[in-house]
Computed example of a mutant assay.
Amino acid sequence: MDWMQLIIRTNKDQADFISEVLMGLDALSITFSDSFDDAIFEPPVGETPLWQDTTISALFNVDVEQTHVQMMLKQTCNIEQSSFELLKNCIWEDECKKYFHKMQFGKNIWIFPSWEDASTLSKEAVIIDMDSGLAFGTGTHQTTDLCLQYLDQNPPKDLTVIDYGTGTGVLAIAAAKLGAKEVIAIDNDPQAVLVTTNNIQTNYVDSKITVLHSDEEGELNQVDLLIANILANPLVGLCEHFSRRIKSGGKIVLSGIFQDQVEVILDTYGHYFSTLSVKQKGDWCCVDGIRK
């Protein structure tokens, strides 16, 4: 089925009201995005911030009366400029294949989507079968990349591991395929728990990995390595919790940290961890250290 998409550029003060009007005009879905592609990370609790210059994309049935919708917007919201464009039907799974390809991390770790052939790689290659999906963490973001680089350089052979904020389970799977004895993958998003469970089965490592929702975490045995690829504010709040989860001499890897947030992480985790070091890719940083 084809759709008509209406694009409106406005400001954050009008965005909510315009969306209500659009819903009254039978819009099927509404999306807010920044007009200048500026992402918002870690908004305050209970707030849903918008950008000063906000673009609204509204989806309508293909036979929508475009003139009527634009006239109503002009009358009720003082919208002078809006444009409709035809959104052709396509197989979205095939569209994803155009942009998600095999990726290498360090010397040996590879992420392969199911539609690409991994048979040409060497015996030493650690292959993770992973398609793009709803949960975060398929290696395309710098934060995941930094964690995979760490695992490639420090294979957790015979170690116990926690992957906290597992997303798709990519780091848990990498740890298992690099020789970890036991891995616990934890996330507070039920969708992530489901995706991770499916991905570890696809990669035949379900005998090594236990997947838990954070509400089910309870009391776990201390581990040799804890990886947390989330964001800086949660990392600060979870510092003591993570410290209790790691054996003395065990290691921690923290990612999802902007460059200007590194000092806060170092100050917070310096009470419990020594030899903290920082690696950076783009605007993002990864911190690792050893439990005192």
Results as ranks from 00 to 15, higher is better:
Met1Ser: 14
Asp2Met: 14
Asp2Arg: 12
Met4Glu: 15
Leu6Ala: 10
Gln14Cys: 05
Ser19Arg: 06
Val21Thr: 07
Met23Pro: 04
Leu28Cys: 05
Leu28Thr: 05
Ile30Ala: 05
Asp34Tyr: 05
Ser35Asn: 13
Ser35Cys: 05
Phe36His: 15
Asp37Leu: 09
Asp37Met: 07
Asp38His: 13
Ala39Tyr: 10
Phe41Val: 13
Phe41Asn: 00
Val45Met: 04
Gly46Pro: 05
Pro49Thr: 07
Ser57Glu: 13
Val62Leu: 10
Val64Trp: 00
His68Tyr: 14
Val69Asp: 00
Val69Thr: 04
Val69Lys: 03
Val69Phe: 03
Val69Met: 06
Met72Thr: 13
Lys74Trp: 08
Lys74His: 14
Gln75Lys: 15
Thr76Tyr: 13
Cys77Gly: 08
Cys77Ile: 08
Ile79Lys: 06
Gln81Cys: 12
Cys90Ile: 12
Trp92Asn: 08
Cys96Ile: 12
Lys98Gln: 10
His101Asn: 15
Lys102Asn: 03
Gln104Glu: 05
Gly106Trp: 06
Gly106Phe: 08
Lys107Gln: 14
Asn108Val: 05
Ile109Asn: 03
Ile109Ala: 01
Ile109Pro: 05
Phe112Lys: 00
Pro113Ala: 06
Asp117Trp: 02
Thr120Glu: 10
Thr120Ala: 11
Val126Phe: 01
Ile127Tyr: 01
Asp131Pro: 06
Ser132Gln: 12
Gly133Phe: 01
Gly133Val: 00
Phe136Pro: 13
Phe136Gly: 08
Thr144Gly: 08
Asp145Arg: 13
Gln149Arg: 14
Leu151Pro: 10
Asp152Lys: 06
Asn154Thr: 05
Asn154Lys: 11
Pro155Met: 09
Pro155Gln: 06
Thr160Val: 13
Ile162Tyr: 10
Ile162Asn: 01
Gly165Ile: 10
Thr166Glu: 06
Thr166Cys: 05
Gly169Thr: 04
Ile173Ser: 01
Ala174Glu: 02
Ala175Arg: 01
Ala175Met: 07
Gly179Glu: 06
Ala180Lys: 07
Gln191Thr: 12
Gln191Phe: 03
Val193Met: 03
Val193Ala: 05
Leu194Ile: 14
Thr196Val: 07
Asn199Gln: 09
Ile200Leu: 15
Gln201Lys: 15
Tyr204Ser: 11
Tyr204Cys: 09
Val211Gly: 02
His213Arg: 02
Glu217Tyr: 12
Glu217Ala: 10
Gln222Val: 01
Gln222Ile: 00
Leu225Ile: 12
Leu225Trp: 04
Ala228Pro: 09
Ile230Thr: 14
Ala232Leu: 07
Asn233Gln: 15
Pro234Glu: 09
Val236Met: 11
Gly237Trp: 07
Glu240His: 09
Phe242Pro: 02
Ser243Gln: 12
Ser243Thr: 14
Ser243Trp: 04
Arg244Val: 00
Arg244Ile: 00
Ser248Tyr: 09
Ser248Cys: 08
Gly250Asn: 02
Val253Ile: 12
Val253Phe: 06
Ile257Phe: 09
Asp260Ser: 08
Asp260Phe: 09
Tyr269Trp: 00
Ser274Lys: 13
Thr275Trp: 01
Val278Thr: 14
Lys279Val: 09
Gln280Tyr: 02
Asp283Met: 12
